[in-house]
Each structure stands twice: as C-alpha cells, then as structure tokens.
Nucleic acid binder design. Sequence first.
RNA 1: GGUCCCGUAGCUCAGCUGGAUAGAGCAUCUCCCUUCUAAGGAGAGGGUCUCAGGUUCGAAUCCUGACGGGAUCACCA
Length: 597
Amino acid sequence: MGIENQLKTSVVKAVKELYGAEIALESIQLQVTRKDMKGDYTIVVFPLLKVSKKNPVETGNELGAFIKNDCQNVSEFDVIKGFLNIQLSHAYWIDFLNKIGNDDSYGIKKVTDESSQVMIEYSSPNTNKPLHLGHIRNNLLGYSLSRIVEANGNKVVKTNIVNDRGIHICKSMLAWKKWGEGQTPESTGKKGDHLVGDYYVRFDQELKKEQAALIADGASKEEAEASSPLMKEAREMLLKWEANDPEVYALWEQLNKWVYSGFATTYETMGVDFDKIYYESDTYKTGRDMVLGGVEKGVFEKREDNSVWADLEKDGLDEKLLLRADGTSVYMTQDIGTAKLRFDDYKIDEMVYVVGNEQNYHFKVLAILLDRLGFDWGKDLVHFSYGMVELPEGKMKSREGTVVDADDLMAAMIDTARDMSKELGKLEGYSEEEAEKVYKTIALGALKYFILKVDPRKNMTFDPKESIDFNGNTGPFIQYTYARIQSIGRKAADKGFSIPDCIDSTTILSDKEVQLMSMLANFPSVVKEAGKVYSPAVIANYIYDMAKEFNQFYHDSPIAVEENEAIRSMRLFLCKSVGQAIKNGMWMLGIDVPERM
RNA sequence: GGUCCCGUAGCUCAGCUGGAUAGAGCAUCUCCCUUCUAAGGAGAGGGUCUCAGGUUCGAAUCCUGACGGGAUCACCA
C-alpha cells in the first residue's frame, strides 16, 4: 500500500475510534505539504470538524497523535490552523529511495501485451511548403504526448497524415513547371521542401500580378479572381491529376519526393518520427466510398445536384457537406477515409488527433460522423486541441513574410548554443563531432522545453530572443543540472568512491534531502496526471522544480567531497536517483540530456 | 450574431479536482567561484489574480453576468 493510502486509512480509523463516525477514504483531503512548511503530507482538517465537533487545532492534534501511533512511518506531526502536517520517518524515506534508486525506468510504466493501444496522429503537413513554427509546436506536442502515453503503460502508434493532394499542391507544381527552368534541389543546393515552397510563393506573386493587371483593365476584384488564367490552369491540373494524367502525375511525384526528403531532414533534426504514414492521395477515395456507403445506409443524404450532406441538426449543429456536386471530396471526406484505413490496419483502443484549436468544430463533426458510420470509438475520439503560436508582433502571416521557418530557427539556435558553449569553454577535450552533438542537444532542448512548458491549449507567444536564453526556467537549465549530476559521479569515481546499490536506513537526512526524496516520490502521480490531461507542461514544470531543488541542495551540501562515508553514499545515491528522474522526465518531453555541457 | 477557448507581476508563464502568506523565469538592483560545472546559488523591489455579483467556514480556482482578446460557423485544407 502506498504511503498516501496508509495515511488516509489511518485517518478513517482515527475518526471512527475518536469520534465514532464512518467516513469514506476518498473524502479525505490529503496533499503534499507546502514547501515552506515543515512536513511531508498535509491533512486538511476543516471537513472533519463536523464529526469531531471540536475546533480545528484540537481535532488536528487528536488526529495527529492517533496517526503517529497508528502508522509507523510517521515520525512527527504538527498542526497549524486547520492543517495537520505529517512528517515521515527518515527510515521511510531511505527505504523509498532504496526501492526506486536502482530503477532505470522509474516513472515509466511497463507496456505489456494487455496494454491498450493508442494511436496518435500529429504533424500532418501540406506538401507545398516547408515546416514552420506552428508545425514545430504540433510535432513537439505530438511526440511528447506519445512518450507520455507510453510512460503510462500504453502501446502507442505514432502516425502522420500527409496532405499531398489538392489545389494548393497544384499551385506549386504549376509554378515550377512554368518558371522553374528545370531547377532541382541538387542544382540549387536547396532543401527540397524549401525549393517547392518557393514556387508556391511564386505562384501567389504571379497570380497577384495577373489580377492587378485585370483590375487595371477595368475588371472588378471578384471578376479578376474568377477569370484568372493561372487559377484556371491550376484547377485543370487538379482535374488531370485526379484523372491520373501521366505527365501531371510524374511531376507530382517528383516534387513530392523532393519535399519528403526535405521533411525527413527537418524531422530528424527535430527528433520526431512516425510508425506509420498515411497519404491523403491514398485515403480520399476510401473516404468517398465510406460516404456513399453512408448514403445507402440512410445516414447521409444525397441531393438533386449529387452533392452529399450530413444533417447534424439533432446534434445541435448545422448541415455538413461531404461530397461536392462533381463528386470530389472535401477535407472531412478524407479524414473519414483515413480513419477507416487506420482501423483496418491496427487494433486501436483510443485515437488521438493532435491538431490546432482552429479545428475544434471539424473534430466535433468528425466524431459525430464516425459514430454514425459505426466506428465504436467515433464519439470518443480525442481531439488534442492546442493553441496558436504567436510572435511578439502578432500572428505569423506567410503573405507578410513573418513566418518563422523551422529549419532556420533550429539552425540559429544551434549556432547560439555553439557560441555560448565555446565562450564558456565547457567542452574542452571533446572532439569536434562530440561537441557538435552537444550543441544540438542543448539547442533543441531549449526550443522543445520553451514550447512544451506552456499549457498546450493556450495560445502562446514565441519570442525568439527569449527562446535563445539558456538561463532560468529553460531546457538547458535542466540539462545542466543533469550534466552536473553526472559530473559528480565522475568526481566520485576519481576519488575511488562508488555509488552504492542501497543506503543504510539509519542515515540521518537533512530537510533538503527529504524534500528531494518527497519530490521524487511524486513523479509517478505527475506522469499519471500528464497522461490524463494530455499535457507535457505538467511534466516540464515538475522537472524544473526538481532541478531547482537539486541545485539548492548541490549548492550547500558537499557530495563527492563529503568526508562522512554514510552521508556521502546517501548523497551520491540520491544524486543518481534525481538524475534518473530528470532523464526519464526529459525523455517524456523528447529532450535528450548530455553527460557534459 | 451563435458556439468554443483565454484574461494572474513591466514581459513570458505556473498554480485552477475550492484550503495556509498567490509562485517561477526574464528584465532592474545587491551579494557569492583558493569545496564537487557560476548555463549555478542567495537576496531586494514589483500583484485590487480584468471587473461586478453569487455559493462556501474558506474563491485566483466553482456559478452567473459584464468587459477585453482569440478561434470557428465555406461545394478551402
């Protein structure tokens, strides 16, 4: 039985014996004691006054005395106002540390054959332009989420749906064909996704020019948009693509190949990956079949013009188009098809979509539609809805060139990490290659932590200047703490001290040491909470607190240089445990920790 | 206009299943490297938790309303 339940059980017993009342275990308010107060756990006595019929302090004292007597792990208690603060014995904490100290996967539950399987969709890029800051948040959240879900003992399938089809793709294809002069990533030395992205921008520029010319000739804005030859050409290209025109198809394949190789590099740098990638070009037809099947089953309605609709009025929503009059699919159709294929491929107990909150409505509708089509999990699908990333000067707008490119951002941060590291002279003795690896670890750690530490559902402001700061509440601060712990281990080894496998139960502990152990003890429940609310931020803030706490301990307690052997051993063992928890927590964020920095 | 989300220090954010004196980081100002990594530690200043009601022994946290900001309501994706 865990300590929290021991304490609660003891309270129930106390209430019964002292006041003759039966209370439910769950009704007891037990919390971790505030850091600035003496004690490890706190029982809030206010709710118990009804049965004790005494004042808070008196009740607290009576309960405290009983519990101290009843529960052997309790060594002290004191009552402040209506709060009963309980202190556990040092022997309890040492026993706790001995239990977890040698567990490399502390905080991470084992995945077994019986575990549920959770599919997590994230990233989902368009193949007409490179990844930007918004995608970074998506990718980091999705990846971290997959780790957190796994750490909670679930099997995870990471998946990506690539939006490789549609008019936007044709725009870059057309522009490259018209003005590309056969340029390739090799001939330009450009990453494939950037090259294709350039032509997407080019299309937009040329289109604007064309429309401006039409308007100058007296056409209205609407007329200009409707009659633009470029747009017409793009639409024709889409039709040809759908009809499998060999030339268009070959062009599409070539540009996509470039984009995919560009994306692969970006994903690699970012440190994310997928177990299974779906392509919209493969799923949209299935979606169309599903919708037509729905018409036959009578759950959708076909109109005179051949368009297909879902009536969502009884769900309090509007009508939703599922197939256009010309039979082509829309966004929703594709998601239905993708869902079908996924469920054919995997046994999925839970489906999580990591998609921005601007699509809340879309997923609300999707859940209803999947449910109507007979997917058991349809109405239970999880839309992990995260907020937008804004810049200090406002929203990112691709047309105004205020988009922060993912590759540029990561490269800039690696440069900063390199400069700073060299200036501090921390990596002397490392080869160029080893040092580069550390720079990258630090840079990506800073970026990932910066983004993951904020509550995912909130909009966040990304200040490039601030993200490059490696001091304070940052990824590098935590990485540094980890590196420090490793350094202590090396120092101890140099002096011929080894880290013990367990420590003696009579060792005396300082308040700070108990505080650290108590924080370590919370790790599993933090992981559980993060999994429940799908929030990497919960993990991030927890590790930060732990690192901060450790640095205070480090500052005023000698560890490897401590003279007393029992204390030195205990501290080394504690260091190791904290290091492991930091490493595992960072793993859940998808952040690596360096041995030196 | 309907629906949904957000509003906490100058800035960026924690805290929100109701509990003790509302916490960090950045920025500003002090101090600490002849003990293990100063990417660190200690301290100071900075708050009517948007506002107004309500529920409660107790509200930043729950409820209602207002104000401010955002998203969405396409035969776009």
